[in-house]
Design a protein around this nucleic acid. Structure first.
Lengths: 121, 121
DNA sequence: CGGAATATTTGATTGTGTCAAATATCTTCT
DNA sequence: AGAAGATATTTGACACAATCAAATATTCCG
């Protein structure tokens, strides 16, 4: 999480970034579902991403009520950094033997499935 | 975490409660260390616990600069509830087989040691 | 005594959470 | 078509917690 703030991002902003893309605008409400938070919350998060020049609101074809969010080129590059640097697990976990790590992945995969792939998508 | 809010507590308030006691007042700064947050932050957290009648500031013998926090009887009883109900793991974890659960405990114990005992203290 | 260190509080600012209400647009029904 | 209801987003008010700098009170050292 300290990794994110080095990039000037809050945790939620980094999570949002992880769900966004330059070419596939995502509706605000879809982002709210992804982030598991209130719609009115996404408004603020996207406001800040937009103010930072990382994302932009676009019109959504077919329904003028919805606004879709897409990354700017700058946003894409920051997202790449987040993925690169944010992929480092905390030291306690990183210190596990490869065998323990495999076991942990295994058990957690059984518990929560493939949902941990949010930032890898 | 929803468990806490049923009891009218925020996450940090519940954590603080877990480190406090009726008979052993804990200095504010010690609580800050335990919660891994800034001293000035503890002020607010304890303010709210105090406003809720769960804790109280006491003088600290031997150093009039420090204020120590102790639970009220009400605070003790709420802490007991937190421990009882907060002990329930999220459903994904609870659904693991006893074997998987044991493996998970094992690997995590190797990773983070006995630090998870904060609420059990 | 005087000055440095320490414990706590205060104040300003930020980000996020909740909830209710406002607005704009879509859909459906008659 | 027109009215009624559903849906998407925003706004506003409020609460909580995080950071940081500055203020205050007390202790400790020389």
């Amino acid at each position: 999480m300290a990794v994110f703030s080095e990039l000037g991002l809050s945790f939620q902003q980094a999570m949002a970034l992880g769900h966004l893309d330059e070419d596939e605008p995502l509706p605000m409400s879809a982002l709210a579902v992804a982030l598991q938070c209130d719609n009115s919350n996404v408004t603020g998060i996207v406001d800040r991403l937009e103010a930072a020049g990382l994302a932009e609101r676009r019109a959504f074809e077919g329904d003028r009520r919805v606004k879709a969010v897409a990354l700017t080129p700058l946003g894409e590059s920051v997202r790449a950094q987040v993925r690169r640097r944010g992929g480092t697990p905390p030291p306690e976990i990183a210190a596990l033997s490869e065998e323990d790590a495999a076991t942990l992945r295994d058990v957690l995969a059984r518990a929560v499935g493939a949902e941990g792939a949010a930032l890898d998508g």
